[in-house]
Amino acid sequence: MSAHENEEKMILDVKDLHASVEGSPILNGMNLSLKPGEVHAIMGPNGSGKSTFANVLAGREDYTVEKGSVRYRDLDLLDLDPEERACEGIFLAFQYPVSIPGISNAYFLRSALNAVRRYKEEPEVDAVDFLQLVRSKMELVGMDEKLLQRSVNDGFSGGEKKRNEILQMAVLDPKLAILDETDSGLDIDALRIVAEGVNALRGGDRSFIVVTHYQRLLDYIVPDHVHVLSEGQIVRSGDKTLAHELEREGYSWLESGHAAEKSQEAS
C-alpha cells in the first residue's frame, strides 16, 4: 500500500445510514466520512438524531439499523458486538454515564483494559502496573484518586462522571472517540477541565466525533469539520466557523429551510 493511499484511507465511512427505535425512524440516510486524526463536530437541535448516531456507532441494541453501511477501518462495523467495537478502538463517552454500585472504578477500568488487551492478544496488566498507568491518566483529567476506589459513577457529581468518561478514554486509548453531549450538565470550569483532557488525547491518528447541541464546547475542542444534523440527515457541513454561525442564528433556519424543501418536493 502506498503512502498516498494510506493518507486517503478513511477511519470511518458511514453511507446512507437509516436507524429506528421501536419502529420510529431516527436516522434517515446519514453520510459521514472521517480521516484518521480528524475531529468532526455533529451539531443539531434536540431530536435530530445526534445521540442515536453516537449510540448506533457504539452498538447499542435499542436501535435497529434499517439500511446503509458503516465501514470502520477495514471492518463492517455493524457486524460487530459492542465489546468487539470497543476492542477495535471505538469509544463512546456517554451523555449519561451509568452508575454501577458494587463495582469499584478501579476494578471496572482494569477489567475493561484487560478485556481489550486480551482481544489484541497482549498480556494483561497486573494491579501494580495498572495503578501506575491509571494514576498518570488521572492527572490528565484532574481527577481525585479517591474516585478509583468508589463504585463506578456512584454518587459522582456531573463533572466527576464526565471526567471519569475521559479517564476511561485515556486508559483504553481508542482510535475513534465519540463524545455524546459531553458538555451537558457541566459548568464552565468542569467543561474546561474535560476539554483539556480531550485535547491532551488529540493528535496522531486518533479521530473524534464530538456530538453537541451548543457551540460552547467547540471553543475548547476546536473541530476540523462541523456538520449539522436535522431529522436524521446531515443538512450542512462546513469548517469551525459554521459552529459560530449556528451560535448566532440558532437552529430555527433549519425548520424554514426544510419546510421550503418539502414544499418544493410537493409542487
Binding site: 457504539a58 447499542r60 467495537r85 476492542c87 477489567s111 475493561a112
Partner: peptide, 10 residues
C-alpha cells in the same frame, strides 16, 4: 451496555 462499550464481554 455500558460495560460492553468498554470492551467487557456480555
Amino acid at each position: 451496555f455500558y460495560l460492553r462499550s468498554r470492551g467487557v464481554s456480555l
